[in-house]
Amino acid sequence: MKPAAFEYLAPVSLAEAVAALGRDDAKILAGGQSLVPMLNFRLRAPSLLVDIGRIPGLDYIEDDRAGGLRIGAMTRHHTVETSDLLRQRFPVLHAAMQYVAHLAIRNKGTIGGSLCHGDPAAELPGLMLLLDARLKTTQRTIAAEDFYEGALDTALAEDEILTEILLPPLPAGTGWGFEEFARRSGDFALTAVGATVGEEARIVAIGAHETPLRLRAAEALFPDIEAAAEAAREEVSPNDDLHGSADYRRHLVSVLTRHALMSAREGAAS
């Protein structure tokens, strides 16, 4: 399990990095916690790795002074997990971070890396949808909802680099819930559901579709939680795989939606 040979560049500016990505078959290396296993399996064999870890100014969690947050793409999971500011503003994201992999992975893996890898069973992409994040790149700003085009497939161009995540403020009094079921601690979710309840409900399913998915039909049925949970089951199109069938995942989506909505409703009421 040794990776194929590649060239390596560690640019110190975004412009330099973008220029390097102009080459065919180049790949961005952020924290590497998803990419390197794929390289070790030789599932990917890029000719050039562009390590963006040495570009200054991409690692921060900042108050946007409007109640939201700006998070640098190279901010590591552990920093996100332990940020007091983030826990206060976006407790649902803080809660979801508890399910992300293991300490050593969280120490190296970055929020931007996870979002761009786009694993449909990963927590962070789903949370971006839930929180209506704006993803700022070297070219534009993309709504999280428009970012995922398929499993491990994003709207990013080959030479486009995600630089910042903008989390708009949650209205005061928003309740939230996050529920995940995995076979083993720290594994990718078999299925997870996040929900927020304010003036309206917002629900996102993770690991139950080829991308993280807003469950709009279920949202529309809120406050009838039972009906929303039933609708959620039909809204996702999970695959059968080694760890769970599509039927089971639909079942989980329904169960977790109910629990997430109940928590969110309770939080909103209090």
Partner: peptide, 28 residues
């Protein structure tokens, strides 16, 4: 070398990391 077992864990700049998921060049 799959990033799962943790046997290769070392501390890099104060944080534990998997040394199978990090290239030596990154540790410059």
């Amino acid at each position: 070398e799959q990033g799962v077992c943790g046997a290769c864990t070392v501390i890099l700049n104060g944080d534990s990391v998997r040394s199978c998921l990090c290239f030596a060049v990154q540790a410059d």
